[in-house]
Amino acid sequence: MSGVSAVFKAVLFDKDGTLFDFRATWDRWAADLLVQICEGDDVLLRNMAQALAFDLEKQAFLPSSFVIAGTSREVAQVIARVLGRSDLASVEQEIVASTKNAPLQPVVELAPFLQNLRDAGFKLGVMTNDAEAVADAHLGKAGVRDHFDFVCGSDSGFGAKPDPEPLLAFCKHVHVDPFHTVMLGDSTHDLQAARAAGMAAVGVLTGVAKAAELAPLSDAVLSDIGQLPAWLNEMSERK
């Protein structure tokens, strides 16, 4: 692709459902985790699945599940309640440790895709409602951590989406105005945060949400992040 566009100079990505296919990664992780933490107790398994909005028959999160855009703390709170545990911090640590080993399925070949964006002059970041340590682990596992100028989780001190503060922290870090920044995400939380931050909002269909749900909040809805370079070029040509 050509150099930095006249419109955008920085790109901020959500992680799960955007860089990594949500279903292929997190449905598989959850199915294994539920069996592990319920230790063969079928009643507990059904209660846990209901609390997390996870369909045991389909082995998949329901589109309404809070887990899709939730933080590790929110997930830990529900799991601790169902298990009857009061040691919330320990439960969250166990969840974070488990998510670090999730079976990642990148949406595209991330290294060349991201390198092309960097070569074109874009500043790159990741803002996820997952924990920062998990984000670092996943990006490292995928071999692309060094491609990003900024990686932020819900526990990084800037809050969580849909609040705009972590997105604005990215802009401050890379010295790019929000007006010249585009946020890509698979959930309404991502797009609401982008709108609140004054960024362009681009939805992708590699999560759970459908185009009809994302479109009202988006400047564009792409099949996946692989379509981003063409969209950036199109936006540049319009100016």
Rank of each mutant, 00 (worst) to 15 (best):
Q93F: 07
V107A: 13
G121D: 13
P164H: 10
G140K: 06
L110K: 09
E94S: 15
N129I: 06
T99E: 15
D186P: 15
V126C: 12
H173Y: 05
N101A: 13
T188E: 15
M127T: 04
D146A: 09
A137I: 05
C171R: 11
F148A: 03
A120W: 05
N116T: 14
H138K: 02
T99V: 11
P178S: 14
G143T: 10
L104I: 09
K100E: 14
H189M: 04
F148S: 10
V134R: 01
A120I: 12
F122N: 09
D119R: 14
H175Y: 06
Q115F: 00
A142V: 08
A169E: 00
P106N: 12
D177L: 13
D146F: 08
Q93L: 12
L139I: 03
P162I: 10
G140D: 13
V134K: 07
L117W: 11
V176W: 04
G121L: 15
T181N: 14
L104R: 10
P106M: 03
P106C: 08
L167K: 03
L184A: 14
G157Y: 08
R118W: 12
N129E: 08
G159F: 04
V108A: 14
V134F: 01
V174F: 05
T99K: 15
V176D: 12
Q93V: 07
G143A: 06
D155G: 04
G125T: 04
D190Y: 00
M183Y: 13
L117D: 05
A137Y: 06
L191D: 10
P162T: 12
K141V: 01
P166H: 03
K123M: 14
E94K: 06
S156A: 09
A97L: 04
K141R: 15
L139Y: 02
Q105N: 13
N129F: 02
A160L: 00
V176I: 15
L167W: 01
L168G: 03
A142L: 07
K141W: 04
A102W: 09
V151E: 01
G185P: 11
D119Y: 11
A131E: 11
Q105V: 10
H189N: 15
A111M: 03
K141D: 03
E165P: 00
C171E: 11
P162N: 04
E165F: 06
H173P: 03
A160D: 01
E92G: 00
H175L: 09
A160S: 08
L191G: 12
T188N: 13
H138Y: 02
K161G: 01
E132P: 00
E94R: 11
L168N: 00
T188Q: 11
K161Y: 08
C152V: 08
D119C: 13
C171K: 14
F113M: 09
A142R: 02
E92S: 03
L168K: 08
L117E: 07
Q93G: 14
C152A: 04
T181L: 12
F179H: 15
N129R: 10
S156P: 03
V126T: 07
A133F: 01
L184H: 11
S187N: 06
V96E: 08
G125F: 05
G159P: 05
V134D: 09
L114I: 13
A133N: 10
Q115P: 00
L124S: 13
V182D: 07
E92T: 06
K161A: 02
D149K: 00
A120E: 09
H138F: 01
F179K: 15
G159A: 01
L117F: 03
A111D: 12
P164N: 11
V134L: 05
P112E: 10
L124A: 09
Q115T: 13
P162M: 05
R118E: 10
T188G: 05
